[in-house]
């Protein structure tokens, strides 16, 4: 139990560093945004799971679940608005109008 928890915490910490590295290395704000919000949240999910395995009591469990729930509820809103603002700031409106339609019709 404890070894799995440490593994999850270590993996979460490593993913957090990789997410931060993505923010450094990716070429523009929109792709950096993928790294920061998505990989960062995945890292935190692993950290919270690991913490729950280390201390499997109810008073920890509901607090950890609440953190994860708030993150999951606010992340799409922040990510969506951030992407829109980044598009406006970088002046990519034309690229958006030219975006190709992919995939078949839903059936």
């Amino acid at each position: 139990m404890s070894a799995a928890a440490v593994l999850l915490l270590g993996l979460g910490a490593a993913l957090l560093v990789i997410a931060a590295w993505g923010v450094i290395s990716l070429p523009d704000a929109l792709s950096r945004q993928h790294a920061a919000t998505k990989a960062g949240t995945l890292a935190l999910t692993l950290v919270l799971l690991g913490a729950w395995l280390l201390v499997p009591t109810a008073e920890w469990a509901w607090r950890l679940a609440l953190i994860l729930g708030f993150l999951m509820a606010t992340l799409p809103v922040a990510s969506h608005l951030l992407a829109r603002a980044a598009v406006v700031e970088a002046g990519l409106d034309q690229q958006i109008r030219d975006a190709p339609l992919i995939g078949d019709e839903p059936h």
């Binding site: 993913l15 990789i18 997410a19 590295w21 993505g22 450094i24 290395s25 990716l26 070429p27 523009d28 929109l30 792709s31 993928h34 790294a35 998505k38 990989a39 995945l42 990519l92 690229q95 958006i96 030219d98 975006a99 190709p100 339609l101 992919i102 995939g103």
Partner: peptide, 23 residues
């Protein structure tokens, strides 16, 4: 996504093929 970051983040790595798409 983590794999993409590692692949394009190492020295000399090509930037990821980003795109706007409609679905």
């Amino acid at each position: 996504t983590v794999a993409v970051i590692i692949k394009s983040g190492r020295p000399g790595g090509a930037p990821p093929p980003v795109a706007f798409l409609r679905v």
